[in-house]
Design a protein around this nucleic acid. Structure first.
Length: 245
DNA sequence: AATGCCTGCAACCGCCTGTGC
DNA sequence: TGCACAGGCGGTTGCAGGCAT
């Protein structure tokens, strides 16, 4: 049985108060980040360390850029998602001042819908070619669902339930066909973004080590993010990425 | 004006990975 | 080598506020 990450008894949960925020800010200003587990006690907070870390990283950090995403940021998120899948921390790392949580929320609440409205499957960034038929199949697209019934859980017919252990879901299969787009991303002058603030250096994602093989292949590869991933190419139909044309 | 539904986002949860011993 | 711990990550939940009826 796994131990809980922290003792939950006596810890506050839910929204942070202004006093708690101030305590956390003051403590980190004085002592710096780190030692999250012991930080709450030291800072006089009745929170678990993880909660403090999340609050700092996602909300209190001074370099966080808040507000709407720009068009260039949107474009970059879409492209990076096509390339990296749901690796929000990596994507956020390319967007100065944005956090993984913010990018993830923005994707789920805005960009996903936007792509769907454009007729693009947000999971693989391909044009949807199978249109829903009125009666033949049970609601193949845009089936809202789940226990709460109020979430934006949009399920498409081409979106099987994923296993969390299946790493192949973490890299969009579109990544396998994105070599050109990848090149455009790692080559700043080719990138579509007009913002000089956006870091397009993807060397973390694609180290040029001797043993490194391109992630664009059809078999198991050693992916740069440290895991072995499976990238598959459908031999008969190389996918096209509508947005990248 | 009241009510119910929908949306966006902050926060939580559980798993994974890295590191030190 | 194996274990324990801390940090990090992605998925999911819950709530507040906006909107429609």
């Amino acid at each position: 049985m796994r131990k809980p990450c922290c003792d939950k008894q006596g810890n506050n949960k839910g929204a942070w108060s202004a006093q708690e925020d101030q305590k956390l800010i003051d403590y980190i200003k004085t002592h710096g980040e780190g030692c999250w587990r012991s930080l709450p006690v030291a800072a006089g907070l009745h929170r678990c360390g993880k909660s403090c870390r999340l609050r700092w990283i996602n909300y209190l950090r001074p370099d966080i850029k808040r507000g709407n995403f720009g068009q260039d940021e949107e474009d970059l998120i879409i492209k990076l998602h096509a390339l990296l899948g749901n690796r929000w921390s990596l994507i956020a790392g390319r967007l100065p001042g944005r956090t993984d949580n913010e990018v993830k929320n923005y994707w789920n609440s805005h960009l996903k819908k936007k792509l769907i409205n454009m007729g693009i499957d947000p999971n693989n960034h391909r044009l949807n070619q199978i249109l829903p038929r009125p009666q033949a199949e049970p609601a193949p697209v845009l089936a809202t669902s789940t226990t709460t019934g109020s979430k934006n859980n949009i399920v498409t017919a081409s979106e099987p339930k994923k296993s969390s252990n299946d790493d192949s879901d973490r890299v969009s299969d579109t990544a396998s066909c994105l070599e050109d787009d990848y090149k455009s991303l790692v080559t700043p002058q080719v990138a579509t973004s007009g913002s000089s603030n956006i870091n397009l250096d993807l060397t973390i994602a694609a180290p040029a080590s001797p043993g490194h093989e391109t992630i664009f292949g059809n078999k198991q590869q050693n992916c740069n993010w440290g895991k072995t991933c499976h990238v598959e190419i459908e031999p008969t139909s190389l996918p096209t990425l509508a947005l990248f044309r």
